[in-house]
């Protein structure tokens, strides 16, 4: 579903990713762990197409298409979703209208008609309850006046409304209390299916107790240093990054 080959990325002339390779198949959940500054967030931004990150070498394929040069909204239309580490506020645009505009934009790019308003509202109500959002939150400007936890819920809520083929969760667990973490993890788990994939970026093993990964990668110094199963995350939690990065290098 997602294939990254020899990816080199710079921002403001600074090299962040240095030849990263990654392949994620349908139905799988991959986790990427790594120390601060290893390039985890850069990777999520680059996959989503943030214009400030320059790909100097390498390619990104999604669903068989080369998306390396695509605009963010085109990638989104192909079914790619990024849950932001720091969700952005858009004053005056409420979440309901924002989402309806997003859904209809994506539908339009597929040549579909706008969603029936009633169908939209029904779906929204259902998912709102599932993810612990309130009607009042949906009426406010996108993320305006939301607490850190509410913002993350809103990201998961939007993901669940947009039903992407692949979602990247960029440190969705940071700033969440345990209840919110469970709700968010439930939201992800409810979406898991044979034809969807997830890339979960996290610092800590904690989130992976609730979202069980199939594959765990360790990212350091701009490349994947080590790949393993779910047990790798547990080991990492025990021993710390330094040990692993060294081991691999040795």
């Amino acid at each position: 579903m997602l294939k990254i080959e020899n990816l080199h990325v710079e921002i403001d002339g600074k090299k962040i990713l240095k030849g990263l390779n990654l392949e994620i198949e349908k139905g799988k959940v991959h986790a990427i762990m790594g120390p601060n500054g290893s390039g985890k967030s850069t990777l999520s931004y680059v996959i989503a197409g943030h214009p400030n990150y320059e790909v100097t070498e390498g390619k990104i394929w999604f669903e068989g298409e080369d998306i390396t040069e695509m605009d963010p909204h085109e990638r989104s239309a192909l079914g790619l979703f990024l849950a932001f580490q720091y969700p952005v506020e858009i004053p005056g645009v409420n979440t309901t209208n924002f989402l309806k505009t997003a859904i209809n934009s994506i539908r339009k790019s597929k040549g579909q008609d706008d969603i029936e308003p009633l169908e939209f509202l029904k779906m929204q109500k259902k998912k709102m309850v599932e993810l612990g959002m309130t009607a009042e939150m949906l009426k406010r400007g996108v993320n305006v006046g939301f607490s850190g936890g509410e913002k993350k819920r809103n990201e998961t809520f939007q993901m669940s409304m947009l039903e992407p083929k692949m979602a990247i969760l960029d440190e969705t667990d940071s700033g969440l209390d345990i209840d919110a973490l469970k709700t968010v993890a439930n939201g992800v788990n409810n979406l898991r299916s044979d034809d969807k994939a997830f890339l979960v970026i996290t610092h800590y093993q904690r989130l992976l107790d609730y979202i069980k990964p199939d594959v765990v990668h360790i990212l350091a110094d701009g490349v994947i240093k080590l790949t393993g199963g779910a047990e790798l995350a547990l080991e990492l939690e025990e021993k710390g990054y330094a040990d692993f990065i060294k081991t691999e290098a040795a």
Binding site: A48, G49, H50, P51, N52, D71, P72, H73, R75, S76, A77, F81, L82, F84, P87, V88, E89, I90, F98, L99, T101, A102, I103, S105, I106, S109, Q158, L162
Partner: peptide, 18 residues
């Protein structure tokens, strides 16, 4: 902000619509 634009576009909204 660029961040607002990127956020809206990540959700599938084109640049002009954003």
């Amino acid at each position: 902000s660029e961040d607002q634009m990127f956020y809206a576009m990540q959700r599938g909204i084109s640049e002009e619509d954003a």
